[in-house]
Amino acid sequence: MAKILIVEDEEPISNLIRMNLVKAGYQCGVSMDGEAAADRIQEEDFDLILLDIMLPGLDGYEVLEYAKSREIPVIFLTAMGDTAQKVRGLKLGAEDYISKPFDVAELLARVETVLRRCLKLNQSLRLGEIELFPESRTVLREGHPVALTPKEYELFYLFMRNRNRALYRETIYEHVWGGEYPGTGRTVDLHVQRLKKKLGLEKEIEAIYKVGYRLMG
């Protein structure tokens, strides 16, 4: 699995990210400031760097540039609403950014996307006999393609990227349909039912009482 370096001076946040990444199956390292980060990048091989752009000591942008020079992809953490930061980071060559406060599920999604894009690894996600190919947006079951609507595909992709993680209806709605969850409506549930049927995942996708669903596996 991929090795990720977390560069963040706030201990609670760095721990939060590490905990979730590890649970998602990644290997993690943590550095509390720019100097330490630069040293670690030099000594070890990382596949991705999660960088807080507002670091004490060595400027976050400098770490970014250094990582870039070592051809390591970077996702940086920025303050919400600070366009200047975002623009500068992206111009310096970061792959993506995420603003604080962030949704952990979203962070995981971005990490997965960047890794897939940059490492050319994990070209597919597997669950038993089912294989999902993000590049072509296709799903194979026992080698045969499964016809899924765009929404059903997105829904399945979301489950596959957040295995063993409870996905709340709001989260599902925001990721698959975009916009704010209307609060009522059976859209999410109907789609989940259909998905379960099409892929035979009645047992694997479990409903969490009143709040959402989880894909086990």
Binding site: P12, I13, L16, M19, K100, V104, A105, N164
Partner: peptide, 28 residues
């Protein structure tokens, strides 16, 4: 001030979300 707000909030929201979404050990 806004920045000072966001940092603790990130932790609070993040950990609460983790607790509700994941199976955590007692220690975690």
């Amino acid at each position: 001030f806004s920045h000072e707000l966001k940092t603790p909030l990130t932790s609070i929201i993040g950990y609460a979300d983790t607790i509700r979404s994941m199976d955590l050990s007692r220690e975690e």
